[in-house]
Write a protein that binds this DNA or RNA. Structure first.
Lengths: 215, 215
DNA sequence: TAGATTGTTAATCGATTAACAATC
DNA sequence: TAGATTGTTAATCGATTAACAATC
């Protein structure tokens, strides 16, 4: 029934932004919204928004626009927010703690089930309601539970090692916060969250601005 | 003397990755490196790397490749890592703390000078060696010191308010971690760090993989 | 010299923008 | 009906890939 539309990489990058906005509009009781309005609220062009929505939605209605709830469901379905995925996190430092405590992940279909750290002082405690286990238990834990996502928040020097162990024990997708490139088999997904990248874009643009150049 | 080469947005996004790698190679005592080697260590194509490096470097030498130190200096200069920028951070929750404690920012030219929070229990304490001040002092602090970068780690509901105050007090570039779109004057830079975006890319790809589709 | 590697120019690919027809 | 809005097809733009000449 529903056509298999090809959704481009760039569109997928923008969808979470629309999703966040639509959720807010829904809460405010708004029932429908036009591409023009979404564009204004996300600083994009109207045409861009229309094209993006066309690739996920069942369609809007001339004059009234798109149904907010339908859009939320459609984007959520494309982005996989509906089927919750379990994840393990390795490296319970500051960043690891922040992620363990973050409450918004369920909304995006992510459920961190446990944290791991090689510091024995940490094992046994709970952070954000999640148990922290010794690193030795990572392997058996991954195998026993059907966990497919691994989050790496260890220092750069240990990241590849942790990554290898995850892959050996059935992890299929890795969210890497360590500032290092990971080598993985070609069928394993890696999403590198590089805090330095966006910072670089910012400071590079700022420097250019200070010099009085045009963007 | 040095030609003003136009560096594309996509190239700038990849430069931090090369930079991290080159720093490691430098530490290991390596003096020169070929585009081919960099490509292998960052999972990119050789041509891509060559093109990227061509837009920042003084040039490499056939047979030997590029000088590691020269590349580091060139990329650092383009990305603005050399001139340190002061920044203020608002919202000393888990994520705010993690950023205040992160030691690697100097390397990227960022220096967080203080954190701000509206919780009176936090004011006066130090996090990561940085003072935490009451939110009321944000305005005067920004004016007094010549701070141009603002980091927002408050809940979504307060982000626009904090943003407005920053802009009013001379902040030129904003690094936003709150999951909300910020409205700013056109001359203010905003870099939106959306943790949900990369997570979405990951889970979307994972879901597709589970269904046995090709990427 | 021969060969590896750079750097540049041309070809392809993908994404954005523009134009316009369809529709409530 | 008139007008706002969607959706699609074509044109433009930018980035990647390929091909090949230049050089140490």
């Amino acid at each position: 029934m529903s056509e298999e539309k090809r959704i481009t990489y760039q569109t997928i990058r923008r969808l979470p932004g629309y999703y966040t906005l639509l959720k807010r509009l829904e809460q405010q009781g708004q029932q429908s919204v036009s591409a023009k309005a979404i564009a204004a609220l996300t600083s994009q062009t109207e045409i861009q928004v229309r094209k993006d929505l066309a690739s996920v939605s069942q369609g809007g209605k001339p004059r009234t626009g798109f149904e907010v709830r339908e859009l939320i469901a459609a984007i959520g379905s494309v982005l996989g927010y509906n089927n919750i995925n379990d994840a393990v996190l390795v490296g319970v430092g500051h960043l690891g703690r922040a992620l363990l405590c973050y409450e918004g992940f369920d909304e995006y279909g992510l459920n961190i089930v446990a944290g791991f750290d090689h510091d024995p002082d940490l094992s046994g405690i709970r952070v954000g309601g999640k148990p922290v286990l010794p690193l030795e238990k990572l392997d058996s834990f991954c195998r026993r539970t059907s966990t497919h996502i691994g989050i790496i928040t260890v220092p750069a020097a240990h990241a590849q090692n942790v990554c290898d162990r995850m892959v050996q024990n059935g992890i299929l997708a890795i969210w890497n916060f360590a500032p290092v490139h990971l080598e993985v088999p070609s069928d394993i997904l890696v999403e590198h969250e590089n805090i330095a990248t966006s910072l670089s874009l910012l400071s590079q643009n700022l420097a250019r601005k200070m010099r009085g150049e045009t963007p």
